[in-house]
Simulated scan of single mutants.
Amino acid sequence: MTNFVLVAGAWLGGWAWDETAGALREAGHAAHPLTLSGLAERRGEPAGQQTHVQDIVDEVERLDLRDVVLVGHSYSGVPVGQAAGRIGERLARVVFVDAMVPVDGESALSGWPSDEVREAIAESGFWPPLTAPEFAGQGLTDEQIARIVDGSTPHPGATATEPAVLTSPLSELPGTYVKCLLDGDEPWGAAAELLKSDRWELVNLDTGHWPMFSRPAELARILHESVSGP
């Protein structure tokens, strides 16, 4: 039985995976949605980037999981990518869902225009959640947008600005990158570099950046096929 550890992106908690996790369980897998420190029901807990990496490692070890697929969405690709190198033989695969890819020594905000985000973090200590209009064009219904906005919490700023620490190259691990096409036609930057590895595959999904809301069943199918084949 495959154990999927599901980690949502900035501002979100494990609740974001409810529908996708349910579909994975119906397919015979175990699904473990994880809320990182400082978010959702863990709001108020202090967190830096390595706190989030340790959250993931601790969950795998606490549950004594084997045959683990670590799934990182958006920001959470950064801690998931680091955690993947730290759980050893427990790891079966890494899956990035339209995710940031960690680069050793660089932060989650490196490589893309982020001055406004950095200024907000410097002022308040948090990365502010998006507002409803900022979700336009991402394949989401008004109801889905409201659900995301209502469930979002300010994201601990240090997790986005502190540098990643990779213990081994991600390119040496088995992986899948899921590119959500409404958020750009193809992976770029560190994601494009990673996909040059013959151990990584690219899967396109015709939806926006939050597929666990817009296309949860299809995302679950992709996750299932990443370990089981079509």
Rank of each mutant, 00 (worst) to 15 (best):
P154E: 13
M1E: 06
V71E: 03
N3D: 05
G151C: 11
T51H: 00
G72H: 06
P156T: 11
A16H: 06
E116A: 14
A164Y: 03
V97C: 10
A136W: 07
E19L: 14
A158F: 07
G88A: 11
E134I: 03
E106S: 15
G48I: 11
P113A: 11
S110D: 15
L195N: 14
D67V: 01
K196T: 12
H224L: 01
S74G: 10
V71T: 09
D206T: 07
P133N: 04
F135N: 03
I148R: 00
W188M: 06
S37H: 11
A120N: 08
G184V: 06
T35A: 00
E218A: 10
W15L: 01
Q54N: 08
R86D: 05
G85K: 08
L195S: 14
G229L: 07
I148E: 01
A160Q: 08
L182D: 11
F213S: 05
R93W: 02
A192K: 15
V203R: 15
Q144P: 01
M1V: 11
G105R: 12
D58V: 05
E143I: 07
R62D: 10
P129Q: 04
V94A: 09
L65G: 00
Q50R: 15
V203Y: 09
L194V: 08
I87A: 10
G48S: 14
C180Y: 14
P169N: 05
F126M: 15
V149T: 12
P129V: 12
V227P: 00
A47S: 14
G208V: 14
Q138S: 05
E193P: 05
E225A: 11
M1W: 06
T20H: 02
H209S: 09
D58M: 01
V101G: 09
Y75P: 02
A27G: 10
G125E: 11
A192P: 09
P79M: 04
T131I: 02
A84Q: 08
V94Y: 03
A99K: 03
S214I: 13
G14R: 04
I148K: 02
T153Y: 04
S214H: 05
W15R: 05
E61H: 15
V95K: 04
L181D: 13
K179Y: 02
A47R: 14
F4C: 13
E59C: 04
G175M: 06
E59I: 04
G13E: 06
A10V: 07
W11H: 11
V5D: 02
P187T: 12
V95Q: 09
N204D: 12
L202I: 12
Q144L: 08
E59P: 00
L166K: 07
R118S: 09
G189N: 12
D198E: 15
P230E: 12
E186F: 13
Q138T: 03
L6Q: 06
G105F: 14
V97G: 03
E201W: 01
I145D: 02
L70N: 08
W15C: 06
A160T: 00
